[in-house]
């Protein structure tokens, strides 16, 4: 057993204790959500620390925490971890399909409870828990563990029900967004849109991530755009091209990209949540041609 503050097993068992407290009898939702969101943060740190403890060390100017996490300095009480915003950003990039916005929503409960005058409650338990467990389940799987290990066999049934509810909620939300896009399009094309809505319609300017590909819009059937930033895999194919007098080698690069968003220029459907993208049947990753420049040897200009 290690006593390192960044040891993933120590973070895991503390997360377990906090989750248990959240599920124990006789607590109000405010307090349950507080313990649950504190556990959530520990799970995120455990998942990152499992990859490397440096990922959770606070990069303060003297590098103390980084040096401790690297094993170059002895563990002391001056080891600090990264703030929640950085934590969720890293988890989002490292652990697909972890959702950074959802994480910020969940952990705001803890912040409000601990650091402000509020009681931490946002929404109802029925709405909060399904979203909570959906993100926790992702982190737990990236820790190579399962939910039974986190909450115990008896309570796992409760969690499974929340996850099922979350799936149904996501599906309903996806259906509602599609219906809303269709009705907006109908109003626009019939010329019966209100001035306010028409102004908003004209200002439609979706955000596109670095890599894009076209995909059929699930609402109107037109050609929309899937886009994403994270390259999951890169493949290079070397080909020999024959010119009129000579032949030369060329390289074609294909990259597989994780989908981050979808937007349709016709009906203005915009989806920036991987769960929603999956729920409407769009691809969660796609292949596009990449930039071959990194495969070319640079010119040295030597004789």
């Amino acid at each position: 057993m290690s006593l390192h503050p960044y040891d993933p097993d120590r973070l895991w068992i503390k997360a377990r204790m906090f989750v248990h407290r959240a599920m124990d009898d006789g607590r109000e939702f405010d307090e349950q959500a507080f313990w649950a969101s504190a556990a959530f943060e520990l799970l995120g740190k455990a998942a990152l620390a499992k990859v490397s403890p440096i990922l959770i060390a606070n990069p303060n100017p003297d590098g103390h925490s980084l040096l401790v996490a690297s094993g170059l300095l002895e563990v002391d009480d001056k080891f600090f971890t990264i703030p929640a915003k950085a934590l969720w950003s890293r988890c989002h990039r490292a652990f697909k399909p972890f959702n950074e916005q959802e994480a910020a929503y969940i952990s705001s409960v803890r912040n409000d409870y601990l650091h402000a005058g509020g009681v931490g409650r946002e929404g109802t338990p029925e709405a909060w828990w399904p979203r909570y467990w959906a993100q926790v389940a992702i982190l737990v799987s990236h820790l190579d563990r399962d939910l039974e290990e986190l909450v115990g066999r008896e309570r796992e049934r409760v969690v499974t029900q929340y996850l099922e509810t979350n799936r149904e909620n996501v599906k309903r939300r996806a259906e509602a967004l599609i219906e809303r896009a269709r009705s907006r399009l109908a109003l626009h094309e019939s010329g019966s849109m209100s001035v306010t809505l028409e102004r908003a319609w004209a200002g439609f300017s979706p955000y596109y991530f670095q890599h894009t590909t076209s995909a059929e819009c699930p609402a109107c059937g037109s050609s929309g755009t899937l886009s994403g930033d994270t390259v999951l895999e890169t493949k290079a194919e070397f080909v020999t091209l024959h010119g009129e007098e000579d032949q030369f080698e060329d390289v074609i690069v294909f990259v597989t990209v994780a989908t981050d968003g979808f937007a349709c220029p016709r009906c203005h459907l915009e989806l920036n949540d991987l769960d929603l993208i999956e729920a409407v049947g769009l691809d969660t990753d796609f292949e596009v041609e990449g930039d071959p420049s990194s495969y070319y040897e640079p010119e040295y200009d030597n004789e």
Partner: peptide
């Protein structure tokens, strides 16, 4: 019982 294994 589970509580012995799971309790922290």
């Amino acid at each position: 019982p589970e509580a012995v294994r799971e309790g922290v």
